[in-house]
Nucleic acid binder design. Structure first.
Length: 256
DNA sequence: CTTAATGTTCCCCA
DNA sequence: TTGGGGAACATTAA
């Protein structure tokens, strides 16, 4: 469920409730939700809530809880625990439910800040982005989905970004002109910022920490619009499979 | 009953 | 080493 804009929205809506608050307990309702060992966190204070790509970090004094939401994970403040609640973090002033229908998500302990992924797409300068592109060969969509290339993009936003940039999802990275690379860089920033402004995309399950849905799905130009007319040219949006992921694009605006 | 779904990881092959 | 394809994980909805 969460890509960068959803994770960012969760962080922004969760932070005011938990930052500076003392932890009372961390309980797992599903064994698979905990990845690896987690030291006792009772009595420790949540210093900061932040985002690393599409993951959420609850930073304590000497480490952090890293929450991977994967496909259906959610962090809801003071929500009632339900059948899909996999863990609950109790604080002095309330609780955070980690809900996750498909159970792909997990919570793990980090003793040092993560740095295993690529740069944040909202922070990487154009020059660095172009240099990174030049170091790769394959197709553009799988590369943008690779979290080691940039961190935070997922299936929805890659389709939206490529649409806005007018680039075919199967375009070869090595054949992108500098101009198109610049357009891609700009589209990345515009689409992500717009999506954050709209509180993310709620296709099925996604809600922020207040339990509210996002509205960026109403502005999708490509994702989920197979067969519908392109807002730019009127041609039907096409759905293909690229790297095992459903991929939506306009055959006219995104020429091969 | 079959397929696809906002994600990642692992295995095999070129 | 890199990249591509397929499968796996668990659950729901169409």
């Amino acid at each position: 469920m969460p890509e960068l804009p959803e994770a960012e929205t969760i962080v922004r809506t969760l932070a005011p409730h938990v930052e500076g608050r003392r932890i009372v307990g961390l309980r797992f309702h599903a064994v698979r939700a905990r990845m690896g060992e987690i030291p006792p966190v009772e009595g420790r204070v949540v210093r900061r809530v932040s985002r690393y790509g599409k993951q959420v970090l609850l930073e304590l004094d000497d480490g952090a809880l890293l929450i991977q939401l994967r496909m259906t994970g959610a962090l809801v403040w003071n929500g009632a625990p339900g059948p899909y609640t996999r863990a609950v973090l109790e604080l002095e002033n309330g609780a955070v439910c980690f809900n996750d229908i498909r159970q792909f998500g997990s919570i793990r302990w980090l003793s040092a800040p993560p740095r295993n992924l690529g740069p944040d797409p909202l922070e990487i300068p154009l020059e660095a982005f172009v240099r990174r592109l030049e170091a790769h060969r394959g197709r553009i969509k799988p590369l943008l989905l690779d979290q080691r290339f940039v961190r935070g993009l997922g299936n929805i936003y890659v389709d939206e970004i490529l649409f806005r940039a007018g680039i075919h999802p199967r375009a070869r990275v090595s054949r992108l002109s500098r101009e198109r690379a610049a357009r891609l860089h700009r589209s990345m920033e515009v689409v992500l910022r717009l999506a954050i402004d709209r509180g993310g995309s709620s296709i099925s399950d996604y809600v922020d920490a207040e339990g509210r849905r996002g509205s960026f799905q109403e502005l999708h130009q490509a994702y989920g619009r197979a067969g519908a007319p392109c807002f730019a040219c009127g041609r039907a949006i096409r759905r293909i499979v690229v790297g095992q992921r459903g991929t939506h694009y306009c055959p006219k605006c995104q020429r091969p």
